[in-house]
Nucleic acid binder design. Structure first.
Lengths: 260, 260
DNA sequence: TCTAGTTACATGGTCTGACCAGTTGTGTGA
DNA sequence: TCACACAACTGGTCAGACCATGTAACTAGA
């Protein structure tokens, strides 16, 4: 017998073919972010299908974050710039539907964020370092004022660290999972208010990470971030989480070994 | 002035409201995977909207992997069991549209997979260990035969490791990014054939990881996995990738320091 | 009685045509 | 020159219809 294999002859849905063609055009770079696709009425003649079919295809692409539509004169479907939104939604959906434990999410975040700190220690530029310093200073200054501007400074610091890791994927996933954790905690209604002591601890933690990154001490940066997140979310880590935490450390330093 | 704040009165799209309600019902667990939603014609009276609107909403949910529709008598929209497909698609889309370098993907995979090995070393059960042993034995046996069954055994080994890490999110993301890397390599047409030497190296690597996990030596397991992946994809790692690799190691062992 | 074939119905997939509500560009008025 | 109104788009929604398909019930034959 020959080597030919047949692929299943699945009846291919019309709207799906439209999705594939447009997807291909976007992903291959034929149409760049910001550019407009033809209007629905134009697409419907180009594809020789009806408008509902076109619209269903556009909805799919839209839910994947590839395009967005605006009405009006110069409106129409527009290719979107990259946005990690759909990845974030996927994470959150996964977390909820797969009943991922909050512990798993926190553990995952520990892995990502400590890795980012390690990478940042090795790859940071002076400019990125400056941004971190600036953010830490602002955190100290704002700690007395509202939690709003304080949080913004905190986020800026983290953004600078992600930036310095020189790995966009790490950053996107890290932010998505952090977002997901926040959402799930909100669902549980146990939003921890930003007490002034919590703010002080945050500043301390970030400053320690900053110093480690400044000193290019990857091991320390990773370890500090790991322990800081673990401590912050200690209430949400289950037995596997705390146990696994010890495994994730290089194997040496200041790790509370509360699990007997 | 009071503390009241107003949220922007964005015109809320009809189909979006339908999506939200159904999404809520699924994510909250009111409708469990496998159960059927009402038919499109039923939904259209329940929501008091037209059928195209219902269909657009269902398309969105479908593209998120939450539901699937089948025609026929007992067909209709059915809530899907969890599948990491949409996450995988998001990864691949992200990688292509954000022009993530293959280097970043590989680095990300190194982070995830080595962490999984570390966790597995700490949390593995005897049963999971047995699966790994079995997979390694099968890899040795199949190495002479086709690459097909060999690859399957290899995948089984990895699956066992992910399993032993006791973190489903880690597993899902790891597999998604591995998949993404394969797709992108295919795009570049440089699919590396499974030479017999490559197979032997894979067996060696997996056996080394297995032994480390057996010995509950988390540091070694992580380090071996890290270096193995780095070596395998060495051609795809750029300067940042190789440099960052050193930072990711605990800081001690057998790491080729080729970057001056 | 049991099985095989047929029929009927409900389902999703698609199409046609229409109307509404915004946005934008343009032209006309002051 | 500027402000306003109008016309021409856009997407969003609706109504009703037809088709192909898959399930289930029913019926005719064994």
């Amino acid at each position: 017998m020959g080597d030919v294999t047949f692929s299943p002859a699945v009846p291919t849905l019309t709207y799906q073919r439209v999705v594939e063609q447009i997807e291909q055009a976007i992903l291959s770079g034929s149409i760049k972010p910001g550019q407009h696709l033809p209007s629905e009425r134009d697409l419907m003649v180009q594809f020789s299908v009806s408008r509902p079919t076109i619209r269903e295809a556009l909805r799919v692409l839209q839910s994947q974050g590839l395009i967005a539509s605006k009405p009006g004169g110069r409106g129409g479907p527009q290719v979107q710039a990259l946005s990690p939104d759909s990845l974030g939604r996927s994470f959150t959906n996964l977390a909820r539907i797969a009943s991922l434990s909050l512990s798993e999410l926190v553990q995952f975040r520990i892995v990502l964020e400590s890795s980012a700190c390690q990478l940042a220690a090795a790859l940071r530029t002076e400019e990125q370092l400056e941004k971190m310093r600036d953010a830490v200073v602002r955190m100290e200054a704002e700690a007395a004022h509202g939690s709003d501007s304080f949080n913004r400074a905190d986020l800026d610091f983290h953004a600078a660290v992600w930036d310095a890791s020189h790995n966009a994927l790490l950053r996107i996933c890290g932010e998505a999972v952090a977002d997901s954790i926040l959402k799930l905690m909100n669902d549980r209604m146990d939003r921890s208010a930003n007490s002034s002591t919590a703010m002080r601890e945050s500043v301390e933690r970030d400053r320690a990470i900053l110093h480690a990154i400044e000193a290019r001490d990857a091991a320390a940066a990773g370890s500090i971030a790991r322990n800081a997140i673990a401590a912050y979310f200690a209430d949400y880590l289950d037995a596997d989480g705390t146990l696994g935490l010890q495994a994730l450390t290089g194997g040496m330093e200041h790790l509370p070994r509360e699990t007997g």
